[in-house]
């Protein structure tokens, strides 16, 4: 929905005026690729701006003009007259600038750019925005050094030796050709080819204890991605707890009794699902399968034993 909204309105018209002028002469095809919209949309916008009656008020406006023959015969946009926005452009709104600044804050540390460069760019964006209240802010996560080593390995196609620890297992050494660093909602994952298993795997960055260069060669081709899902579980939850589980849900929540909702969640690993449900603090209940329900109870029993009795 929103993807189309931004491109369908006035914004495209304004940007196209600047773009076409700066390009001198540009084909409809190139303009469509540049803006990521269908060619028909570009032609429509050109007609709106350059050929239809732009304000025809009391005669104080001149029309935007293009080379009409070139547009009709060769699908070329070639601006001949631009009476408004000559040396002006609509600035970023405060929130548009905030979106860019917030995005930079979240990812800046994971790029090759130094902290000063990122900060300079943030300052430049602030200056490029029109005045307004500062209404969006995000905290900077700070990238561990491991992330930078992995990123460079991806760029230069070098395999790595990871000291990796899966929950409940001792540290194991894994030969990995990393292909991508993924930042998902504050968690960092390394995607890559497990060279011993010759299969794509995803590693959590915070479970990597050490990283070293590997002598293993870069694989010639990437194996396909497979995702092992053991099944689904049925959960009853309060709406707030359902929102916390939404990432794992395979069905939309359906309201049942007493304000609770029913939803299905993916079971990719029993331990992870138990943790996610327990993290709702008792506001979510596993209904089925029975084995998972039993496991959830044992999880709580074990945790209560570990916590010890309440002090008198």
């Amino acid at each position: 929905m929103s993807a189309r909204r931004a491109e369908s309105g006035l914004g495209l018209l304004l940007s196209l005026i600047q773009y076409a002028t700066a390009s001198g002469s540009v084909s409809v095809q190139d303009a469509a690729a540049h803006f990521g919209v269908p060619e028909a949309r570009i032609r429509e916008a050109v007609v709106r701006v350059f050929m239809a009656g732009v304000p025809d008020g009391a005669g104080d406006f001149i029309r935007f003009d293009i080379d009409f023959d070139a547009f009709e015969d060769q699908d070329l946009i070639s601006v001949t007259m631009r009476p408004a926005f000559e040396d002006e452009t609509v600035r970023l709104s405060p929130r548009e600038a905030s979106a860019l600044i917030a995005g930079l804050t979240l990812v800046g540390d994971y790029t090759d750019a130094g902290a000063e460069r990122v900060e300079a760019l943030r300052a430049k964006l602030r200056r490029a925005a029109s005045q307004g209240a500062d209404t969006v802010a995000v905290d900077a996560p700070g990238a561990p050094r491991t992330a930078q080593v992995v990123r460079d390995a991806i760029r230069h196609r070098r395999a790595l030796e990871l000291a990796y620890r899966k929950p409940g297992e001792p540290t194991a050494s894994r030969s990995v050709a990393p292909t991508r660093l993924e930042l998902r909602d504050g968690q960092v994952f390394v995607e890559g080819v497990d060279l011993d298993k010759q299969a794509m795997r995803t590693f959590r960055l915070d479970r990597i204890e050490a990283v070293a260069p590997s002598a293993a060669p870069w694989p010639e081709s990437l194996p396909p991605h497979e995702r092992a899902v053991a099944g689904t579980a049925e959960v009853l939850a309060t709406p707030a707890a359902a929102a916390m589980l939404a990432d794992y849900a395979t069905s939309a929540p359906v309201e049942v009794d007493g304000g609770r909702v029913r939803l299905e969640i993916e079971v990719w690993s029993e331990a992870s699902v138990l943790r996610a449900v327990a993290g709702c603090g008792g506001d979510a209940e596993v209904v089925a399968p029975a084995s998972l329900r039993d496991a959830m109870r044992r999880f709580a029993d074990d945790a209560l034993s570990a916590a010890g009795p309440a002090p008198a």
Partner: peptide, 23 residues
């Protein structure tokens, strides 16, 4: 930075910003 918001939250803002930058 724009890609951070591909799936929501500040999607509209970042798309409008991208449109302006593409001038």
């Amino acid at each position: 930075a724009l890609r951070v918001w591909h799936e929501g939250g500040l999607t509209e803002e970042s798309q409008r910003a991208a449109l302006k930058l593409r001038a």
